[in-house]
Design a protein around this nucleic acid. Structure first.
Length: 278
DNA sequence: CCATATACCTGGCAGC
DNA sequence: TGCTGCCAGGTATATG
């Protein structure tokens, strides 16, 4: 999926277009993605206003007010592996895998998700949104204060497996997927195979800093468009062009020139330089 | 508790 | 030209 940078780039693209606008309806073209879609979505949100778009990990949170029932609510959206959001004009015909439209008069927010691993959930504000079962279990935000080497060192203490899958564990740190885990480890010179609790405090400093740098420069580059991901205007991100290791098996390492290796960890491909990463 | 495997779903591609 | 098998940005759930 879209990892943290792609979700954040989506948010940054959508917010100025849609914040404060009123919703005139919704269309769902499938009954479920990862979970069933909200029932009667159009009725629920018709006449309501999109008050804000926030991000938590890889989730987008659409805060809604002025709803027909007089209450506020939120939509929880996850792009899964292949989801993307675009703003289109209502006269643009939906393509295959365009599952949901949220209509704002003359603008439509359209969710496309070929693999249907994404999610769209309605959350009534009877309970706090942070307590939603999918959100309550999420770990620290890597771009916010508090995520640093000391935090990492402390929390890697009990993890006896290799660092790469640990870095991708959203219950520990949110937002780091397969691309940015590989890139962050390369930048910090740490092998993806290294046992998590055997990374020194000093190297945890470097790792935390690399994670922050990798994610922020990816946001600045508009995210990565490897396969499905596109911006809200349909354009592509270009961070993949500056990837040092991801999908570069056999190509020369940008630091030492030796070939990048690809291995399998926890069922996913890992790319790294055995010479530069120890 | 921790680590790994599996399932969800579709499409693109290499190899035969 | 098909067919098959594998691979893909995620994560909840089941199983050791």
């Amino acid at each position: 999926m879209p990892e943290l940078p792609e979700v954040e780039v989506s948010r940054l693209g959508l917010a100025p277009e849609l914040t404060g606008r009123f919703m005139t309806g919704a269309i769902t073209r499938t009954s479920r993605l990862r979970y069933p879609l909200p029932e009667r979505l159009g009725q629920k949100l018709q006449g309501g206003r999109l008050a804000a778009i926030r991000r938590r990990g890889k989730y987008l949170l659409f805060d809604l007010d002025h709803l027909p029932n007089g209450k506020t609510a939120s939509l929880i959206l996850h792009l899964g592996m292949s989801g993307s959001l675009r703003i289109v004009s209502p006269d643009i015909a939906p393509q295959p895998h365009d599952h949901v439209d949220i209509v704002f008069g003359d603008k439509v927010l359209r969710l496309r998700d070929p693999r249907r691993f994404g999610a769209l959930l309605w959350h009534d504000d009877d309970a706090p949104l942070e307590n939603h079962p999918l959100l309550a279990v999420l770990g620290i935000e890597p771009l916010e204060a508090g995520f640093d080497g000391a935090w990492l060192h402390k929390h890697l203490h009990k993890r006896t497996g290799p660092i790469k899958p640990v870095l991708m564990d959203s219950h520990l740190v949110v937002g780091i997927g397969n691309i940015y885990a590989a890139e962050s480890l390369f930048m910090s010179g740490i092998s993806p195979l290294r046992t998590a609790n055997r990374i020194s405090a000093t190297r945890c400093d470097r790792l935390a800093e690399s994670v922050r740098q990798t994610l922020s420069s990816a946001v600045a580059a508009g995210g990565s468009s490897v396969r499905d991901y596109v911006h809200s205007d349909g354009g592509a991100g270009c961070f993949q062009l500056q990837c040092a290791v991801y999908e570069r098996e056999g190509a020369p390492c940008v630091k030492c020139g030796k070939p990048i290796r690809r291995i399998r960890q926890a069922g996913r491909s890992t790319f790294y330089c055995p010479h530069c990463q120890k």
